[in-house]
């Protein structure tokens, strides 16, 4: 009995640490967004007079143009990734396309540091005269969002019973109609989760955005980095921008957390 209590207690302690590790920086950022530069220079300060000046400064700047670009990039990326990824995942799940290697091999590109890929992207973008647009950023994001979305969906497609596909084919439908009318509806929750997952991946990327987009088409993470100026880091306004970037992701994660586990374990375990 006592032993169980001890385990429970240690569990709680562990959870408290975990929550603190995640939540404290967020709380700090949230508080920082209401601090004056003077208050920010005294990290130990507990009581301070909140100011809205950081918020008014950032909200009146062109940060929302960057938000718009990020939304556009992530949306287009996810739209393409879901279409390509669902067909790829179905193919791998149902027909073992590419053999047993493709299931995990598909993620192999994730091992490469982005620096390996970014310069090819840059030079291709120059050759196609697409530099300065969002197109190369979308393509660079596809390079990691498509594999992840595909891998994520394999387990969902594998869980669709084969009989209902056969039934649809006997009922008079061709392969593609069977996929579209019978298989896809079964995996819609998975596709929704994959879309949100893919969206946050694209939304959070800074490296490709930094290299591939020049200053006149910055996406949000690059804009945030922009508060690190030659006069020093403008912590207050940066905190506001960070919050603007984080909040949609937190909300999205809240909705997909259950499916996220299903997708990750399903893709890994289902044989």
């Amino acid at each position: 009995m006592n032993r169980f209590k001890l385990i429970d207690a240690s569990r709680i302690v562990l959870l408290v640490f975990a929550v603190a590790a995640v939540a404290l920086p967020l709380v700090w950022v949230a508080l920082a967004s209401f601090k004056t530069p003077a208050d920010l220079n005294q990290p130990g300060i507990v009581w301070f007079t909140p100011t809205m000046s950081n918020w008014t400064e950032v909200l009146s700047s062109d940060i929302f143009v960057s938000v718009g670009r990020s939304v556009l990039v992530a949306t287009v990326t996810v739209a393409i990734a879901v279409v390509v990824g669902s067909m790829g995942a179905y193919s791998i799940a149902r027909f073992s396309t590419g053999g047993s290697l493709s299931r995990f091999g598909i993620l192999a590109a994730q091992v490469l540091p982005p620096a390996v890929l970014v310069f090819p992207f840059l030079s291709v973008a120059y050759m196609l005269r697409l530099n300065g647009t969002l197109v190369p950023i979308i393509f660079s994001h596809l390079s990691f969002v498509v594999p992840v979305v595909t891998w994520f969906l394999i387990g969902f497609f594998a869980a669709v019973p084969k009989e209902i596909e056969e039934q649809a084919r006997v009922d008079g439908f061709g392969r593609f109609d069977t996929f579209r009318l019978v298989v896809l509806p079964q995996v819609l929750p998975g596709i929704g989760a994959a879309a949100i997952f893919g969206f946050t991946l694209s939304w959070n990327d800074m490296f490709y955005g930094l290299i591939l987009s020049p200053s006149n088409s910055t996406i949000l993470p690059v804009a945030i980095a922009g508060f690190n100026t030659f006069r020093g880091v403008e912590l207050g306004p940066m905190a506001v921008a960070i919050l603007i970037a984080i909040i949609p992701v937190v909300i999205a994660s809240f909705f997909v957390q259950k499916r996220l586990v299903q997708g990750i374990s399903g893709g890994a375990v289902k044989g």
Binding site: I164, V170, D171, G172
Partner: peptide, 29 residues
Amino acid sequence: EPKDRDIAMVFQNYALYPHLTVRENLAFP
């Protein structure tokens, strides 16, 4: 292809389309 054979089949586990109602299942073919 199965669709061109003009056949209907009943599977052991019935293979009903889970996302459709009974009416839609019946009307599906």
